[in-house]
Nucleic acid binder design. Structure first.
Lengths: 183, 183
DNA sequence: AGCAGGTGTTTCACCGGTAAAAGACCTGCG
DNA sequence: CGCAGGTCTTTTACCGGTGAAACACCTGCT
């Protein structure tokens, strides 16, 4: 029982919330299909769009370092766990297929950013670790990412950020609980 | 399997915030690079992860309709504007390259979901519109998407949703203002 | 009129991702 | 022991996306 979908309520045009792209899209849908409850779009559309813009913006520092986002996530997983990981681990950490990981590892190894060695106990298993340059690369790029992120987020007050993070955490909890086929 | 599964023992103190994936990742970074300001990660990591999970979850109804997400967005743009659009328009609406739009249009036209005709005034431009079946397809899928979205969002109280949407709108405003190289 | 330069669309060559099969190896059970 | 079945990684075949070039067409200037 979602509460009444039509929250135009006050009838006022103009005194709307944010004038972002998503709001415009939702408005179009409402005009064409007024019987639909378009409320969820505001939230989910904004999440998707924010994510897309953030990714795109963060591409810049990565390109400078000659890295793909996916490659960086792989290196990041190695860096933050501080251990050697197997390709399988990395696939799980980065939410991508094993095949993709293999391909990336091949390239990263060719550029001497990671190192692969066979596991002694189980020769099916490969152990991947950062090389010195790999570690340096991550440590050089990450602060740039973070400072960019902090910059973007500076448009929100500290407590707004906190509330936003908390609410997203709650939502994410729902999502991760609901869709847990993997992991 | 990685025999050293001692992640249980390591982090025993449980009274943390949301127990989502992002929190765990941030915690790892903080341990390895304590001097970094990892605050932004909470927010941006959650946005990215939520977006990824949402996309993945919404893939299901789309597959049932035999559509890709990108194809659906293209059809959706046509549906919600209610007009004929050119490939260029569609590229801008769906934030993808012209080449991608051309490819998708070819497939959608082959399946008789869209219709292309040359513009009379300017024979360079193509006008794309939904066919009857195209319209029906969108109108059948969209409510499923929305009801799924409403379902996911039902974990949040109404005012939480509103605040979340408002905060994201503010953030999105910043982003769209900051990165406007395109559009 | 004719052409230089601009715009809209498509084609081309390539890149990275995936699912499924193949390959290599372990392990437990008869 | 020896092999059937499972696990981990890589290979294969293909798919969709992109940037840049090609193509087709318009328009303004001389």
């Amino acid at each position: 029982m979602t509460d009444n979908g039509d929250r135009t309520g006050g009838g006022g045009t103009g005194v709307e919330g944010p004038a972002d792209t998503v709001a415009a899209v939702v408005r179009q849908w409402r005009e064409v299909l007024p019987e639909l409850d378009t409320e969820p779009m505001h939230l989910i559309g904004r999440i998707n769009r924010s994510a897309a813009l953030l990714r795109q913006a963060e591409e810049a520092p990565l390109r400078r370092a000659g890295l793909t986002r996916a490659e960086f996530e792989l290196l990041g997983a190695l860096r933050r766990t501080g251990r050697e990981l197997t390709p399988g681990d990395l696939a799980r950490e980065t939410f991508s297929s094993g095949a993709a990981v293999t391909k990336r590892l091949k390239q990263l190894a060719a550029r001497d950013l990671v190192d692969r060695r066979a596991d002694a106990r189980d020769r099916r298993v490969v152990l991947v670790r950062l090389t010195e340059t790999g570690r340096e690369t991550v440590d050089a790029v990450l602060p740039q990412q973070l400072s960019f992120e902090a910059d973007v987020l500076s448009g929100l007050a500290g407590d707004e950020r906190d509330r936003l993070a908390a609410l997203l955490g709650k939502l994410l909890g729902q999502l991760e609980g609901r869709i847990p086929p993997m992991l």
